[in-house]
Computed example of a mutant assay.
Amino acid sequence: MRHFEFTVDRLYAKSVNQTWADVRRLQVAAILVGLLFAAAAVGLILLGHPWSIALGVLAAITALASVWVSLWVPKKVGSIEDLYAKGPLVPAIISEIHPRALTLLSLIDIAKPGKGGPSYALVTRNIPIRAGQKQAIGDKVPSIAVLSDRRTHSDADTWEMVSPMPIEWGTRDVAVRSRAVTAIDKVEWNFLQSRIAESKQIRTSRDQRVTLSEDELPEALR
């Protein structure tokens, strides 16, 4: 696993990092759901009917579960620094440009540690276009792979949730980005360039990824 060390600009990352924004949105949604069910629980219990009390208890349990989710999610994901430190450095390129978003195409080893050899996949992720951002098809976007499971105790050989998180979401320093580009083998960059035409197919597939057979990979990655 190839790691990449750099100093994360925490304030900047919080303002632009979409992975962190997704976590915050999930937290807020869980809190709002919890408040709604808590209010429903109070109203149902105050009605005083056996059926309303039973429903109120169920609503209260759901409210507590939502609060638990809002607390559990950030602990599971970790801090912004943790995300960049734990994930492997992977190549990603701009493969599509939409009116308000870009599609990144990335090459990621989705195999879990200790589960045998590597299992490479082409993975896409749509990201918003920031104001003033210049972009072109094929531009290199070195990234960190965010790897996780939907379930706490998954016995799958590959990660269930995989996405690239650009280095540039963690720092304004262009020298850091250049160093990350250099740290990734040219073979990987060239391979991604050769698969740009498949971006839409991958983007519209289940989990926005397609696992590659060994024969499809460059010899250096087999």
Rank of each mutant, 00 (worst) to 15 (best):
F6D: 02
V16R: 06
W20P: 02
A21L: 11
A21D: 14
A39Y: 05
L46P: 00
L46N: 12
P50L: 03
W51Q: 08
G56R: 07
L58P: 06
A59W: 08
A59T: 03
T62C: 08
L64M: 13
S66E: 11
S66F: 12
S66M: 15
V67L: 15
V67E: 09
P74N: 01
S79E: 11
I80T: 01
L83I: 15
L83H: 07
Y84G: 00
P88E: 04
L89A: 05
I93S: 07
I94L: 03
E96F: 05
E96S: 00
P99I: 03
R100T: 12
A101K: 15
L104M: 05
L105N: 06
I110L: 02
I110S: 01
S119A: 11
L122Q: 03
N126F: 10
I129Y: 10
I129M: 04
A131S: 12
A131T: 12
I137P: 08
V141M: 05
V146D: 10
R150C: 03
R150L: 12
H153L: 14
A156Y: 09
T158Q: 13
T158N: 15
I167P: 05
G170Q: 05
A175D: 14
A175P: 00
R179D: 13
A183P: 06
D185F: 03
E188I: 01
N190I: 03
F191V: 00
E198M: 11
S205P: 09
Q208C: 07
S213P: 04
L217T: 07
L221G: 02
R222G: 02
